[in-house]
């Protein structure tokens, strides 16, 4: 164990942790923009700077590890001034198109500017005419729009793709002297949308749902993704009775904030007009829409007839991987206890 002092508070901690980790674990707030918990520090935004005794220059707290006896200050006038100036650099030609940006009210840049304030431009003439809503450019998958002018070059997307997904599709670079992200290896993209999920601003937005809503207009319902056996936790973002987006929860297993292409983008079918929402009974060559009672009675009657005439083993049940474990459990119970057969199978076995 080593001892460090943060803002006058003595703290016992283990060596090898970063200043930011120790501060957060002890309820001390340091602003960050590029930092993402489960990745190696990116060190791009420089907003997490702190002062450390013995050094004239500020130290990036997300990168710098604690050493024994370190004396750290997280909120001095000088630091606040520097953080504010760094934000001003990000705002130099950031379009002020918040009113039409998907991310408004959930945007980390908005939050930080709100927190640290904005008094005057970093130097006269520095704020040009804000470039309003330049159209998005091509990303590595069609499910995502990239608005370069809104990008703060935090490189969360790049590193999440490298370190969490393991694909390495994206590269940070520059265009006309301005930092930008390039989908340099689109052939490696698996369209999982992890980059989208970590973008702190409206540079990456979801391009699937035609419907959008502000955070206060949405309700989030936690459920389990129906697509495969991993059972990732997802949150359905619902507005006006429609699912408009799928997000997830970083704190919850098994997926801890990650999703694949199906879980994240495969929700259109819910709103599809081709979906069956009422039971149908075939009569002659065509289908007739019926009530649930009628349908269930009809099926029960037919099953009973078959069982009486040919025995229970003439009936087999095939259930779906799209159903939950509980659904499947009840289904096989029904087949075994009510129908009386072991002829049960499941599409995932095929």
């Amino acid at each position: 164990m080593i001892t460090v002092t943060i803002d006058g508070r003595e703290i016992q901690t283990e060596p090898g942790k970063t200043i930011l980790e120790v501060a957060r674990a002890n309820g001390i707030y340091i602003p960050t923009l590029c930092f993402l918990e489960d990745l190696l520090p990116i060190g791009a935004c420089r907003l997490c700077i702190v002062e450390v005794d013995g050094y004239d220059q500020p130290q990036p707290s997300c990168v710098q590890v604690v050493t024994d006896g370190m004396n750290i200050r997280t909120t001095t006038e000088k630091l606040l001034e520097m953080r504010r100036d760094i934000l001003k650099l990000l705002l130099l030609d950031h379009p002020l198109d918040c009113p039409i940006c998907d991310k408004a009210a959930e945007c980390k840049l908005q939050d930080l500017v709100y927190e640290l304030g904005y008094d005057r431009a970093i130097a006269e003439g520095s704020v040009g005419v804000p470039m309003l809503h330049k159209p998005p450019v091509k990303w590595s998958t069609i499910g995502i729009n990239y608005f370069p002018s809104r990008c703060v070059a935090c490189q969360r997307c790049v590193h999440v793709c490298l370190e969490r997904v393991g694909c390495g599709v994206l590269e940070a670079g520059k265009e006309d002297g301005t930092p930008r992200i390039f989908p340099a290896h689109p052939e490696k993209c698996i369209a999982c949308g992890e980059c989208l999920s970590v973008c702190p601003v409206g540079a990456l937005t979801e391009a699937v749902s035609p419907l959008k809503a502000r955070p206060w207009e949405k309700t989030k319902t936690k459920t389990v993704c129906p697509y495969c056996g991993v059972g990732c936790v997802i949150e359905l973002n619902v507005a006006s009775g429609q699912v408009i987006k799928v997000t997830t929860d970083e704190a919850v297993p098994p997926n801890y904030g990650t999703l694949c292409v199906k879980g994240r983008f495969g929700f259109e079918f819910i709103n599809s007009d081709k979906r069956l929402t009422k039971p149908l009974i075939r009569q002659g060559g065509s289908f007739r829409e019926v009530s649930w009672d009628e349908a269930l009675n009809y099926v029960a009657k037919k099953l009973k007839e078959i069982k009486e005439k040919h025995g229970a083993s003439a009936i087999a049940g095939l259930c779906s991987a799209r159903c939950t474990n509980e659904d499947n459990y009840v289904f096989q119970k029904f087949m075994r206890a009510v129908i009386g057969t072991n002829n049960v199978d499941h599409c995932a076995r095929l």
């Binding site: 420089r46 990000l90 130097a123 703060v152 070059a153 301005t178 930092p179």
Partner: peptide, 30 residues
Amino acid sequence: CGKCTPCGQGARFMRTLLEKMAKGVATNDD
């Protein structure tokens, strides 16, 4: 390289200000 905010975003603007100075049109504020 553009991989951190101060230099990545600031270098451009430093050049703009120096350009004004070189043209002789900079102000004391610049």
